[in-house]
Design a protein around this nucleic acid. Structure first.
Lengths: 231, 231
DNA sequence: CGCGATATTGACAACGCTCAACTCACGTGG
DNA sequence: CCACGTGAGTTGAGCGTTGTCAATATCGCG
């Protein structure tokens, strides 16, 4: 009996949190839940967007491949967040890859089913629109940042974003709660793993961060914030 | 009698083009039409977003000020496009300034009125959502571009975007149909007016473009596209 | 134990920003 | 009609930041 999926897994989700238990159960039942091993490609840039996804557990990165072979990490997805939804609802190809960075659990729905669910539970449609708007603004900010700022500042911004999104309080400071490589941080900040390595080493020396293999703890968040946004 | 505004001005608008003439007339009547002199600030970053705007004639730029004083041009608006809408519908402050770059004519609606119009004419709401989705994807692409590419390539991309958006066919090539400074192009590409000046000079030498004061013609669009996106 | 993935570190080169001086076009007002 | 001022653009020199190349070190897993 693998069918006993806990509908409460959706409680934390932006888009389903406001639904009552019955509704959440129905929403979950309409989709397919599946575990995904680390490193698994969920959908690819260019694939027709025919499914909407929501992450229940784990962490997923949305990555855009550039023609020259380099990659950009557009965003990281945590539990409760949706992805692929905008492309699917617009009948467009997915604009980027989705890859799990740790073992994860997701639900997905064919877009037709999701449209029905949105019709039945308007909260979902509202939430979806709101979240798209929020992302629009975030991306505008990022465009501004990437356009003019120096590398250290961009890396600091990337890290602060990760802190807010995936930070866990520990005695040593705020820890990024999933494994992340310098390469990935570089792909977020628009830099190279070399520069990221040097920058983190410098911050470690100053006690701002404490980083090791695929693992980062921000010991002095206020200093990092200052680096990200010099008043 | 300044009230005789031609409802056909809305025909070209993404969001109102599908409405019949009566509907367009009603939509126009519900808003306020006003001329705006060049250089006029329409709304400011941080202002409460209480109005939705649509450009009838002219050209508007959306500019984000960065803390260090530098600016980023997020996008240019042409006739038929809306701006300020997402912020207003989300009850958020405007995330950037809107400034006219030539003498223009706009309509604007208080957001409450726009909500009513969307209720009455769902096409408007649909169009609005679709356009937000499109912009989301465009911004994702820009993030990818700004992150890794060299300056010449970013300038080429900015120019190609302008070509598509504001290009007019002429015997000499495709002309950007509104006055644009090197400074503004630099703010689009995330560079400086100096580098843009040098780059344009080089392109002019090669016959790719023909630029003069606040005026650019792309003589060899295919070459520019190749510069923007080396296969 | 060995291999692949990850990270570190140094040397070097260059891209493009900063600073600075100058030119040119245009509109304004005397 | 010309003088002037301002905004826009050009061009050169210098240098810092950061990417590139290369070699080495570690970690973790099979």
């Amino acid at each position: 009996m693998s069918s006993a999926i806990d509908p409460d897994l959706l409680i934390g989700a932006d888009m389903f949190g406001q639904l009552d238990t019955d509704a959440r159960t129905a929403v979950l039942a309409a989709g397919t839940v599946r575990p995904l091993a680390q490193g698994r490609l969920i959908f690819s840039q260019g694939d027709p967007g025919v499914t909407c996804h929501s992450l229940l557990k784990g962490r997923v990165k949305i990555v855009q491949a550039r023609p020259d072979g380099a990659q950009s990490v557009i965003r990281f997805i945590g539990p409760g967040e949706m992805y692929g939804t905008v492309a699917a609802l617009m009948d467009r190809p997915f604009p980027a890859d989705a890859v799990t960075v740790v073992d994860s659990l997701e639900v997905y729905w064919p877009v037709g089913v999701m449209r029905q669910l949105m019709g039945r539970y308007p909260e979902i449609a509202m939430g979806s629109a709101a979240s798209a708007g929020t992302r629009l603004f975030e991306l505008q900010d990022r465009v501004g940042e990437l356009a003019g700022e120096k590398v250290e500042q961009r890396i600091a911004r990337a890290l602060t974003r990760l802190m807010r999104q995936a930070g866990r309080r520990t005695p040593q400071g705020i820890e990024i709660d999933f494994p992340i490589t310098r390469q990935e941080l570089a792909e977020m900040a628009g830099s190279t793993l070399h520069t990221v390595s040097r920058t983190l080493a410098a911050w470690d020396d100053r006690g701002v961060t404490s980083s090791s293999r695929r693992h980062i703890v921000v010991c002095k968040p206020h200093v990092l914030l200052e680096l990200a946004d010099p008043a």
